[in-house]
Nucleic acid binder design. Sequence first.
DNA 1: CGTGTGCTTGATTACTCTCAACATCGGTGG
DNA 2: CCACCGATGTTGAGAGTAATCAAGCACACG
Lengths: 228, 228
Amino acid sequence: MKLDCDNCPVRDSAACASLSDVERAELGRLGTHKSFARGETVFHAGDDNDICATLNSGLLKISSSDAEGKERILSLVHPAGFVGEMFAPVAHHDVVALADSRLCVFSRSEYEAAVDRFPSLARALLRRSSEELFEARNRIALDTQKGAAEKLANLLVGLAKAASNSPCHAAHEFELPMTRGEIAGLLGLTIETVSRQFGKMEKEGLITRTSTRGIRVTDAARLTALAG
Amino acid sequence: MKLDCDNCPVRDSAACASLSDVERAELGRLGTHKSFARGETVFHAGDDNDICATLNSGLLKISSSDAEGKERILSLVHPAGFVGEMFAPVAHHDVVALADSRLCVFSRSEYEAAVDRFPSLARALLRRSSEELFEARNRIALDTQKGAAEKLANLLVGLAKAASNSPCHAAHEFELPMTRGEIAGLLGLTIETVSRQFGKMEKEGLITRTSTRGIRVTDAARLTALAG
DNA sequence: CGTGTGCTTGATTACTCTCAACATCGGTGG
DNA sequence: CCACCGATGTTGAGAGTAATCAAGCACACG
């Protein structure tokens, strides 16, 4: 399906926001919209790495699986995020839709050519990449300096922020966009530990579970403090 | 001290290798060489983020410290590596020399201008950033899917590779460029656990300790297998 | 020498994983 | 409509790994 940049929900926040109208129109001619239902795979680790995409709406996960098949989620991709490895011949990780999602998809070679043609796009991608690197390193720091409770608190704070429309305010109440297993894979814990931590948080009055996936934050201050 | 790109040891592998001779000469005029002794800080988290640098020789660590002062090493920077955050007003992490090191240092604003002027430099940095991101994510995967022995084995294999001059062959014998405490901070373990894992590895015949810091790999195959 | 830093080793504790049983929800088909 | 089923989530008991606490060792340096 043809791109419609004028009505794009991430028009001002995605990498292509750095382009002029003329440039964006040219880039727009190279891409197509594509939808993925929750659970569908955008691409697999090991696939020929021939697409790049910007997330329009929805939520993606980037994950890897070890030999025993245990999954570790390396990153969540929110709208305006970019997926695809520009410099690798094959994809290193799996990319799967966590929620019904809509993407602008480009062939990697064409996108690469566009990066060379539009320096501001290269700059925007560099910025994005730096931020992702910062995120990844924060996660590393979190992984071992903190225990299960801190990790989960940190995730909830992040999801609460993502759930609200305004970037500065966190949502008071929201739905978890993933299963316990996915949360466990994201935090490097087991399903059971995640479940127990939810129980403990509720008992301690930090949150209320409005349903298995529904979270109401009842003590944002303490939750944030716990998250570090 | 004035740059001497012609005799630069990382002339062909650093980000500036993407530049033409003319361009490199122009960039070279903006930077200076600077040396740091082991333990010296290149910049601190929270500093005004006004320098960028390419590592010429030596070894750096990028680390963060949590509230209780425990350090986590987020990344090692080998020669040809780039340090400095182009898009953050203040530095997020500490950068410290692990070995006596020599850097090409640029003011951030001048380097940023150079990135805009030389598209191939932007591309090279984007590539570097993507690779660092990949490294960081690999570390995330390692962090929880594997135990202490696997993590240490993985580090040793990496250091053995870095210690040899040729990029494909690993050194048979080498010196650890860091203390047990730094290894612990890098792997997210404690000093004691690291020490015990060294002992176990030696007892099992994977390595021999030629000194407290000296490592001889006696069973590279099993060590690599353990590293995953 | 004595001191300090880095390293090792041992005993104990704490946290998370593993294994296992059970509960809940949604959908399907009799 | 209800019974069944699979997937998901909760809860409990026990095992295992690494952290913590606590000495002691080794080497370098004044």
